[in-house]
Simulated assay, not measured.
Amino acid sequence: MSTIAKALQLLDLFSDSQPQMGLSDAQRLTGRDKATVHRHLSALEEAGFLEQDASTRAYRLGPALTRLAGMRARTVPEVEMVRTVVDTLSRTAGELVHVSRLQGFDLVDVYHAEQHDHPVRVSFDAYGLPPLFATSSGKAYLAYSPGGVLDLALADPRTWLPGAEAPDKGALLTELKSIARRGYARNRDALRLGVSSVAIPVFDAAARATATCSIAYPTSRGGNAAETRLARLLMSHGCDITEAMGGAVPPDVQSIWTPSRERAAS
């Protein structure tokens, strides 16, 4: 990993639960030597990506990020392209729907919608970075990625459940093959007790998995019947979501997502 990448990686340490941190905190979380971390923090501060509280000496996200985020929102219409499809899907499902893009092995929110009136909802942190192997989105991505991606993901402890050991590769391979045959990934009470989800991959223009779309719902809302209904609904919108993001669904995946009666009529 380049020096620039290592410095920018420090920005991912900040969250709603940890909006500020000192040099020692950053050193502990990264496992790098203190001199290197200090050099990276100083460089980020100089560029405006971080700022330092004069009284506590703690670092927090800087104004340059606000400017860049605003520029991206104005110049990259990704959210606007996918908004209509996701809003419609959420209204039909009656649940939380979210599209995430893979940034390294982090699932970064692109857009999410809750177009329903259920009093019991799934809480969603748009700025949180859930571990890849604990989510249906992460598994959906891995199931449609080249084999070497799984080894790289397993080697990064940030993709594991907090406090857990590395996932078993053999069991994962079996699960990922099932996902590829089925057309969607599923999770039940894995990341959070009482929350289930189904997810599909979203493909880029070269038909490579690059993002995911997931429906999350309270486990109490239903068992296998709810999963089947929501998975079918999600897959029926899979081509629309990929096309809205400028991509193309591989023919074999499209065949799985298309109900047999529709294939027979075409």
Results as ranks from 00 to 15, higher is better:
F124P: 01
Y59W: 15
A134C: 14
S260T: 13
H40N: 15
V110D: 05
R57I: 01
P119Q: 06
A185N: 05
D204S: 02
L41T: 12
D33N: 15
A265F: 09
E227V: 12
V82Y: 03
M81K: 14
E80C: 03
M81F: 12
Q52S: 03
W257N: 03
Q115G: 02
A244C: 06
P218E: 12
A164T: 12
L41M: 14
A205N: 04
V198E: 00
D156P: 08
T219N: 01
H118R: 15
T174Y: 00
M235G: 02
L142W: 10
D189V: 02
S100V: 14
A265M: 10
T212E: 05
R181C: 01
G128F: 04
A199T: 01
A190V: 15
Q254R: 15
P259V: 09
G246N: 07
A58H: 13
L65D: 04
T30M: 00
A244Y: 04
T3P: 02
I215G: 01
L107P: 08
L41C: 11
I4Q: 12
A231E: 00
T66S: 12
L29D: 03
V82S: 04
G222K: 06
D53I: 11
C239D: 09
D109V: 07
L107I: 07
K139H: 13
R83S: 04
T36S: 15
G70K: 10
H118W: 11
V86N: 08
Q27N: 01
Q27W: 00
L172Y: 04
L173K: 14
R229G: 08
F49A: 15
T242W: 09
R263E: 13
N224R: 14
S15P: 04
L230P: 00
W257V: 09
D25I: 06
H116N: 13
P146G: 03
L150W: 07
L13M: 13
V108D: 03
E45M: 10
T88Y: 07
D12K: 05
I241L: 04
P250R: 05
G70F: 10
V149R: 13
Q254D: 11
A199S: 14
L29S: 10
G238D: 04
Q254S: 11
Q18C: 07
L102S: 03
K169W: 01
L142I: 08
S214K: 00
V85M: 00
D106A: 12
A134K: 03
H118P: 00
D125W: 04
H112K: 07
T88E: 14
A171N: 11
A155Q: 14
E262Y: 11
G128H: 05
M245I: 03
G148K: 08
T258Q: 08
D53N: 15
P259L: 06
R83K: 12
L150A: 05
R182P: 01
R67N: 02
A7H: 02
V97R: 08
S145F: 05
E80M: 10
G170M: 12
I215S: 03
A171S: 14
E175H: 13
R101A: 12
A64C: 07
A93L: 06
A205W: 08
P201I: 08
L96W: 09
V198R: 01
L89Y: 06
T174P: 00
H98L: 11
P259S: 04
G222T: 06
F203H: 06
S100Q: 15
Y127L: 14
D252I: 10
R186E: 11
